[in-house]
Design a protein around this nucleic acid. Sequence first.
DNA 1: TTGAAAGCGCTAACAT
DNA 2: ATGTTAGCGCTTTCAA
Lengths: 335, 335
Amino acid sequence: MENKKVTIYDVAEEAGVSLATVSRVINGAQVVKESTRQKVLEAIDKLDFKPNQIARGLATSKTTTIAVIFPQSLFGHVKDMVGGIGDAGRLLDYNILMYTTDDIGDGNSIETIIEKVIKTRADGILLFYNEQIKEELELIHKYNIPTVVIGYRIDDAMTCSIYLDAREVGYSITKDYLDKGKTDIVFMKPRQNLVDLDQFVKGMEEAYKEAGIPFADDRVLSVSSHYEKNLPEFVYYFKKHRHQVVFTGYDKQAVAVVNAAQDNGIKIPDDMEVVGMMDTSYAIMCRPALTSIHLPIYDMGAMAVRLLTKMLNNEPIEERQVSVVNMLIKRQTTN
Amino acid sequence: MENKKVTIYDVAEEAGVSLATVSRVINGAQVVKESTRQKVLEAIDKLDFKPNQIARGLATSKTTTIAVIFPQSLFGHVKDMVGGIGDAGRLLDYNILMYTTDDIGDGNSIETIIEKVIKTRADGILLFYNEQIKEELELIHKYNIPTVVIGYRIDDAMTCSIYLDAREVGYSITKDYLDKGKTDIVFMKPRQNLVDLDQFVKGMEEAYKEAGIPFADDRVLSVSSHYEKNLPEFVYYFKKHRHQVVFTGYDKQAVAVVNAAQDNGIKIPDDMEVVGMMDTSYAIMCRPALTSIHLPIYDMGAMAVRLLTKMLNNEPIEERQVSVVNMLIKRQTTN
DNA sequence: TTGAAAGCGCTAACAT
DNA sequence: ATGTTAGCGCTTTCAA
């Protein structure tokens, strides 16, 4: 049971056939006679042969590998997506190469990362929306690598995308509140980008306009992405400000709003309603538990991989730009 | 600027040298004359040549790739580690192949996963402690692949490990409380395994024994890993039980304890102190903010990769089993 | 200091 | 249905 370096030659010899036949067997070619197939299979088993994917990659110019490039800053938001990506990769028999960006200021530019990806000859690339997405795509396009972007709608020939129609979400949730007569709504907008928060704002504006209410600039507050900063920020803010409803770009900010408001004696949800986004575990651990906009994060990861493999295999693709469903999960921070 | 398929031959031709020389240049061989080196570099630049890592891998039998196998159930705990792993991989110029296990009951057995890893010819493997770790290591050892285990001390020739000495932590934190006269301590133990919680219990026992206090079985409660389950579980529990101190195996459980205790009118920290583990963002978002045992998660990921690359390059390794430091971060759930 | 040529382990025509 | 052979794009002796 020496596992030194069993090659297709060894198997061929053991089975008394040529290496081509072995190759046919491991690739499931239909032409092989059943009896020889069995012989080969036995030899493979006996020698514990594992086909070298590197050699195969060189011969076929395909690596069955997908490169995923995460902005580390997004990692908290996308961790559940890793499950979907991993499961789909396993199911479809693709390997997932993981690259991260941010955080360390080393050779960390997108050029460097993409150069690495090119060198590995990954078949496809999975990208998350971020500030530099356009540059990234431009670089990638030079190499004609199929790409899927998560979190932002991209329309071009080499790219598919999976995204939330944030404008629609912003519009409808705002409209609901306006219809109920709650017109003092504020949006705490962190610098975050798995969801296009600018579009969300656009949607809010639209609803206001439709209701004939002017949409003042101070309905949108740019806030930190870090809870530690948010909390004091909001404690201060709610000393002077009151609102009927607060939307946030991410659950963490919603928790900070809840905690800060309570510190200022604001009763939630009676004095003020709070809506989070992404429906993370923070939502259920918060007291009162957060109402939050739920996205199918796991599925987005799985769908992205599936979509990418379709592109790689030239399978027909019905929808190149997939807008995912969302759902408002009502808990205790809203009425 | 056609990026069709530039190979080392094209570069050689462009530079007017042989492909061997080009190979020497891209591999930094010292023998090449500076003037030819420049010619080659220019040609590489002009043609935008990116060496094919697959071909190189075949020629050298090295892939500069590390396979990381995550149990998905651990993902919440290890997400920050992904940062460390990614950064270290980038710095050391290794690619990270990501495999996940769990969750879907498909071809998800460890054999299947490890077979995939073998086929990719990854140079090394990064593993997280889990219930099947021994079987996994046994399988891997057949192929002589250097491995690093995170979360559990493993002593064998092919394996290094990075772990928390949970026994010591359990001992010292328990002793501190016993010394202060707080002898009614309980441990909420989820099924979790980046930290060896059984060892933590051993440490607690030791401290009790040393203090001459019997350590009753009901000091350790096996609880769910899910907050949704924990909360009702604990709300019920604290209707009948009171303790001076509660340790937990993970911050989520600590949050559940805090919330459940407060529902039962138990004042924290005055009536009861609560200590979390892992010092996650849950700790700061909880009210009152959690005291928690902090581990250098990011560093553990980075160290693991560094350690693995040392093994791969036959660099000297001072410590094959690295015990990481920990720190009790005191917040508002303890006095 | 450079070039020629063999080989890494496989796939895919092309023959048979 | 099976075997032969020429690559895939690189590294690495061995010669020159």
